[in-house]
């Protein structure tokens, strides 16, 4: 827990959301945006919990591709 990543600001999340929506070519109606942003914020909080937990570099992601 020593390596806590600083929380992005609400403005940063909103800006990232809008940029990603544009990048992906999605069209978000103005009346949807507040709900989409709320979901983005909940997901960001969940991600923060995960990011705050130290993991060894050698730890591989769970899905393993076996040819």
């Amino acid at each position: 827990m020593t390596d806590t990543v600083p929380l992005p600001s609400d403005d940063a999340r909103a800006a990232a959301l809008d940029a990603a929506i544009a990048l992906l070519g999605l069209v978000v109606a103005p009346e949807w945006r507040i709900s989409v942003l709320a979901h983005m914020n909940v997901t960001a909080e969940a991600a923060q919990l995960v990011l705050d937990f130290p993991l060894d570099d050698e730890l591989e992601p769970a899905p393993v591709f076996r040819p």
Binding site: A16, L17, A20, I21, L24, L26, V28, W32, S35, V36, L37, A38, H39, M40, T43, A44, A47, V50, L51, F53, L55, L59, E60, P61, A62, P63
Partner: peptide, 26 residues
């Protein structure tokens, strides 16, 4: 729809971190 749109915008690093955490938790 609104959850899916939000999910499309999140950084790949978050997802891969979660999959690495999955290995730890397992």
């Amino acid at each position: 729809r609104d959850r899916l749109i939000a999910g499309a915008t999140i950084p790949a690093a978050w997802v891969i971190r979660a999959q690495r955490f999955r290995r730890w938790y397992h």
